[in-house]
Amino acid sequence: MDITVIYYLVPSLIMFCCGVYGFVTRKNMIAMLISLELMLNSVDINFVVFNRYLFPGQLEGMFFTLFAIAIAAAETALAIAIIINIFRASKNIDVTDVTKMKF
């Protein structure tokens, strides 16, 4: 069986949608962060697969993925630091409780 580009794209899109679903439905901020990671990683898969199958002569997508992974790590570190701050302030990281400001 030939593994074509579509065999990668469908799982990566499903992964992205899982990430969006998790981001919207999860109540725990760490779980939301994990969902975000899922979304970012599925995008990385997209880039690598497009590069490998459609444009094998170049490395643009691969390099983009490398940078995207580094950026995602920075984002996670920052978000976790802020969530720890929230936890210190309120002993709770449930998003339904982070509602002091509302309109």
Binding site: M29, M32, E75, V98
Partner: peptide, 15 residues
Amino acid sequence: EAAVKYVLTAVFSSA
């Protein structure tokens, strides 16, 4: 609270 709202939406939007 503002920071967590900002960082989560910012990462979501960049994804």
